[in-house]
Design a protein around this nucleic acid. Structure first.
Lengths: 165, 165
DNA sequence: TCTAGAATGACACCTTAGTTGTCGTTTCTA
DNA sequence: TAGAAACGACAACTAAGGTGTCATTCTAGA
């Protein structure tokens, strides 16, 4: 009975979809988890903000190589202008540099400098150090599967979100 | 080999803990997913903000019954003062009301009004409607397990975070 | 019981991350 | 080649929430 796709809720008479409820719960859980992660990140000095923060920006460059500012903005939860400003700030700190873009004269590619790569390495090591102390009761396989399902949900949400633009 | 708890990363010589990397990845995935959920919530009008928003506040009351403002603030990712203000605003809208607290004369209990409960019901139904269109490729069992593991991670992060207060 | 310290409500100020808007220029595309 | 879209640059502007403080109230320990 519990496994039925839809069933009636005694009392209200409303139709309750168990799977939908489970997904809703997962979404709320993800949100709460995010806030805790962000709080931990801030306390440890790993990040200041998230969407417009340097860590994610540098991570994109570290994983994908040189990108233009608009490209980075597209894959981050913030605006093009915000990323532009961050890029300028990081460039001022010598963590990234602008290099010529063969496909676009005006829109330069942003690339980690030696210093920037080193800084990212430190931050990533810090993240891994934190991560290594967590999930002691969980197996690696479970964690990977969880990440995979969260990613699928994430994609679903994105698609759904873009449909009502 | 891949399943070993720790192994050397060719090239850098750094010790790579596969499980830690998986947890780090999961945390980043959760963060990205949150931003997409928030964006969807805002587009659909379900929420405006998250931490200081009305939905989470009302949900706490709907699930747990009357609570004091400080109690609500403790379980939400925001400050006591913020929740106080939100409580006042919601009271002004007639969605919640303050009732006498037998255990504390000054700190009243906040409770959903009839109108507030109805409003929460609508919002929750909207959330379920959205949720029911997602995760079509996933089974309910997988979703529940995912939520459970995210919750465990969330708790781990919280504990870790509170240790360095 | 008395008192020190913590919790609470109320209010004001402020920080800041991020958005929005615009403009001139450059690039793409039909 | 013309019109549309993308880009960098810059300037408000906003909203969300943090921080600080103070009077009042509660709690717990001597």
């Amino acid at each position: 009975m519990e496994a039925m796709a839809a069933r009636h809720n005694r009392g209200t008479g409303a139709i309750v979809d168990g799977k939908a409820a489970a997904i809703a719960e997962l979404m709320l859980e993800v949100a709460q988890c995010f806030f805790r992660i962000r709080a931990l990140g801030q306390k440890t000095g790993l990040i200041t903000s998230w969407g417009g923060g340097a860590f994610g920006f540098m991570r994109s460059l570290a994983l994908l190589g040189p990108l233009t500012v608009p490209q980075i903005a597209q894959m981050r939860p913030t605006s093009r202008q915000r990323m532009q400003r961050l890029a300028d700030e990081l460039a001022a700190e010598g963590l990234v540099e602008f290099i010529d873009n063969p496909k676009h004269r005006r829109s330069k590619l942003v690339q980690l400098t030696r210093k920037g790569a080193a800084r990212y390495g430190e931050l990533n090591a810090q993240l891994l150090a934190i991560a290594s102390t967590m999930g002691t009761a969980l197996g690696e396989a479970d964690i990977r599967k969880t990440a995979e399902i969260v990613r699928q949900l994430s994609d679903d949400v994105k698609v759904r979100s873009e449909r009502l633009r």
